[in-house]
């Protein structure tokens, strides 16, 4: 392998093409870097920070950092996985996640990543935020209690569906959230359709199809069959 076009990921040599980010090259080589807001079909958002790696000894987001020849990248070290576990716990305490009653359970990237990283408890005191549910659309339910602010719905609706149904707005722990681009702020007043790319992109249980409960039984769902770290798995199809 040509030394100018590879880098080291936990001691493994990973080839890359110029312009590829670390996570893109790792994914292509079948190596798993934990991530939640990155999806191979979309531009990186860089907000969840789960993909944090150490590049030549310094922290960086592998979904936004371009691969460089010869760089030494630490990924699944005890130190980094420990930080990732804390980030996951942050997601669980800032929202309301009751997995046993969630339709996404078993198909959820947050839950699957928490299993992968052996997160045993939320650790911090829960925030129990008050977040509204939007059931105004005939075919889609939005349960923002589980939102992890990954922005994937924003990208999918804008870049694939050409509709701009969602946008991120507000600031801080209480203010920042997904907004709906309609005068009423309700999904029912947009041209959103259940066939939109954005309708199936959410890695957690926010954007759900109505009347589709338990179509696949628990035990046979995506991450019941193989962990999220398996080479062919992605946060959402």
């Amino acid at each position: 392998m040509n030394a100018t076009t590879t880098f080291h990921l936990d001691g493994e040599e990973i080839p890359f093409t110029p312009g590829q980010t670390i996570i893109q090259a790792a994914k292509a080589a079948g190596a798993y870097i934990p991530h939640l807001c990155w999806h191979p079909d979309f531009q990186a958002n860089g907000s969840c920070k789960l993909c944090t790696v150490k590049v030549n000894g310094r922290f960086g987001s592998s979904c936004t950092m371009e691969a460089q020849a010869g760089m030494v990248v630490e990924n699944r070290t005890a130190e980094l996985d420990d930080k990732r576990r804390t980030l996951l716990q942050m997601f669980f305490v800032e929202g309301n996640h009751f997995c046993p009653s969630c339709e996404k359970s078993g198909d959820c990237a947050l839950q699957a990543t928490a299993y992968e990283l052996k997160m045993m408890s939320p650790h911090f005191d829960m925030f129990y935020p008050d977040r509204a549910v939007d059931a105004s659309h005939p075919d889609i339910l939005l349960d923002f209690n589980r939102c992890i602010m990954c922005s994937l719905c924003v990208s999918a609706s804008r870049d694939v569906d050409g509709k701009n149904v969602f946008y991120m707005g507000g600031r801080g722990i209480l203010g920042r959230r997904v907004h709906i681009n309609s005068e009423s702020g309700m999904l029912g007043d947009t041209d959103f359709a259940a066939t939109d790319r954005a309708a199936s992109i959410c890695p957690v249980g926010v954007i759900l199809k109505k009347r589709k409960g338990f179509a696949v039984p628990i035990g046979e769902r995506t991450y019941d069959l193989a962990p999220i770290s398996a080479p062919d798995k992605e946060t959402t199809p």
């Binding site: 860089g46 907000s47 969840c48 920070k49 789960l50 980030l87 942050m90 997601f91 305490v93 800032e94 911090f124 005191d125 925030f127 992890i148 602010m149 507000g170 600031r171 801080g172 722990i173 203010g175 920042r176």
Partner: peptide, 21 residues
Amino acid sequence: FAHESCGFCTPCRVGTTLVRN
């Protein structure tokens, strides 16, 4: 800091509130 955090990234959005608490 908990008030000023913009909320874009997880460590700061949640971390500043945890520290404040």
